[in-house]
Structure formats: C-alpha cells, structure tokens
Amino acid sequence: MSVKNSTLKWILAAAAVVVLAVGIFLIARNPAAKTVGTVQITVQDQNGKTLADKKIGYKEGDTLVSLLENNFKNVRMKDGMLMDIESLVTPDDWSYYIAFYKDGKYSEVGVGSAVLEPDARYSFVFEKLEY
C-alpha cells in the first residue's frame, strides 16, 4: 500500500471512530424529562380492551421507562423495546408485539428513547404482526 493510501486509510479510520463515538453518545443520552408534568398511559390488548389507563405525574429526571416500571405490573424491556406489560407478553415468534403510540400516532422513537412531554398520551397496544 502506498504512503498516500496508508495515510488516507488512517484518516478515514480516525473519522469512523469519531462518528461512532458521537453516535453512541447520542443513542446512550439519557432521555430524562426536563420539565414537570402529567402524562396519560394506556395499555390495550389485541381486541382493543383497555387493561390499564393511568394519569401519572412526573418530575425532572424521570423517563417513560421509569414511569412504566413504577406504575405498571410485569414491565420487561429488551434492547429499548417494551416486551411485557401487565398481562401482555410478546411471544418468542413475534406473532404479536406491543406497538407504541404517542398522542394516537405511531411513535417516531422507541420507548427507551422517548422524552416525557407534558399532557402527552402514550398508548401501548398489543398488535398482531400481519403480512
């Protein structure tokens, strides 16, 4: 490998390390609430039956995951995704999954990355994986 190519290789490697470090930092950033407020959290089964519906107050530093863990039964997270809550259990074959909605729309971020917003309505709905 020529000296020029070798130099370029190490410059690119350094750039890749920087991009990786920034990316991991952004992903690992704590999605803690920056305000105080109240949110509504609803859990529904596959038939649309409401299993839980709670208005919960939160303070600075709280996260959606911490609210779920402190206010609902059987909460289990895996890789930032909600696997189990109340009587809903994601099966191993993923034929059903817990869909995450914010204010009635499919959330743009995962449960683990969501930052609490005042008066937001978070819904967890057990949905069949259809194809």
Binding site: V19, G23, I27, A99, Y106, E108, G110, L129, E130
Partner: peptide
C-alpha cells in the same frame, strides 16, 4: 413499514443515527 405500519419519514428519522453507526462500524 409493511409489517409495523409505520410511515416512511418518521421511521427514516428514527433509524438514521443507527444507519450512520452501522456505516461507521463497517468502514472501520
């Protein structure tokens, strides 16, 4: 999009950071 009934732009926006990380780790 088909399986999870998500819209294109919100999905792309939430996935972009993970895409950049995959590209950077592949490059490295």
């Amino acid at each position: 999009m088909w399986l999870l009934h998500v819209e294109f732009l919100p999905y792309l926006a939430s996935d972009l950071l993970f895409e950049v990380i995959l590209a950077a780790s592949s490059a490295l």
